[in-house]
Amino acid sequence: MDVIKIALVGIGKIARDQHLPALSADPRFELVATASRHGSIEGVTAFQDISELLKAVEVDAVSLCTPPQVRHELAAAALEAGKHVMLEKPPGATLSEVEHLRGLAADKGLTLHATWHSRFAPAVEPARAWLAERKVRSAKITWKEDVRVWHPGQEWIFEAGGLGVFDPGINALSIVTRILPQPFFLTSAELHVPENRQAPIAAELAFKDAAGNPVTAEFDFLQTGPQSWDIDVETDRGALKLTHGGAKMFVDGALTHEGPDREYPGLYAHFAELIANGESDVDVSPLRHVADAFLLGRHTAAPAFDY
């Protein structure tokens, strides 16, 4: 397979922290251009917007790291120009946007990769295999982190479409939708929205799976000190616990799997494989659960939040 010439659109924190190191370490990709209003990469041709980039530089693929509210227009432009597209999570601001992009990619014979980086955490697939041989009795998600540490000054995250606490919470949902053997459905939700913001800063969700077993989630964007990225699953033959965002797996309290952070290298390896095979990967189930929470959830006022 020839080296994939790729452009990175949106040069912010996630691009610098994760995408650039992953691309630099993968010989299947060559970063040839960037497009961003607020950033650039030394030694890489830079543009202010994607339309300028697509006219001036030959690229095979585009990776979008912008906030979700503006991603659909950018992705559609890249697909219309005949480029494969990789989408940061969440893949769009709405489900309808993503479905449109899915159809557009299919019509043009291009790869569309809606990424869920937490699914590439080292203990996720071992957890999936372990649960496949057991009956789940209940599952509990505890996902609490400090927004000031992980999203410093990112005002867009609390705007409409920015998802608020569901920006990290959707990572947990991406893991649970991958590892649980049965689908689950929202029954109730409580969304705590700061009085000066549009998106929740905390949330509690209750689901039931297809067999009627409870699945619960607690999301919080104001946790200081130790951060919590945990998933607990009770089964008919033991208890499973994922910690550190899926990096470690415990069975009945004993550590069984752990590994280094290879989430974004895993995403790009998968993207390269999809392109080589002429396939797409567009699973919207985590985003659908978030949409259900906004549709069904009760909104309660929370104190004003400022960075």
Rank of each mutant, 00 (worst) to 15 (best):
W116K: 11
W116L: 08
H117R: 09
H117Y: 08
S118Y: 12
F120C: 04
A121H: 08
V124D: 07
V124H: 06
E125Q: 07
P126I: 02
A127T: 08
R128M: 03
W130I: 10
L131C: 09
E133I: 07
K135V: 10
V136D: 08
A139Q: 07
K140I: 07
W143I: 08
K144F: 01
E145K: 09
E145S: 10
E145G: 13
D146T: 12
V147G: 08
R148A: 14
W150R: 15
Q154A: 11
I157G: 05
I157V: 07
F158H: 05
G161S: 12
G162K: 06
L163C: 02
L163K: 01
I170H: 01
L173M: 11
L173H: 06
V176S: 02
V176G: 01
T177Y: 04
R178S: 07
Q182R: 09
P183G: 00
F184W: 02
F184D: 11
F184A: 05
F185G: 04
T187S: 06
P194M: 04
P194N: 09
E195D: 09
E195M: 06
I201R: 08
A202L: 07
E204N: 11
E204L: 05
L205Y: 04
A206Q: 14
A206I: 05
A206C: 03
D209I: 10
N213V: 14
V215M: 10
T216I: 10
E218V: 11
E218N: 03
F219S: 01
D220V: 05
D220N: 14
D220M: 00
F221Q: 03
F221W: 11
L222N: 11
Q223I: 00
G225F: 10
P226D: 15
Q227P: 09
Q227H: 04
S228A: 05
S228D: 13
V233H: 05
T235A: 02
G238I: 06
G238M: 03
L240R: 05
L240H: 06
L240N: 03
K241Q: 13
T243G: 12
G245E: 00
F250D: 10
F250A: 09
V251Q: 15
V251N: 12
V251M: 14
A254V: 15
L255D: 12
T256I: 15
T256M: 13
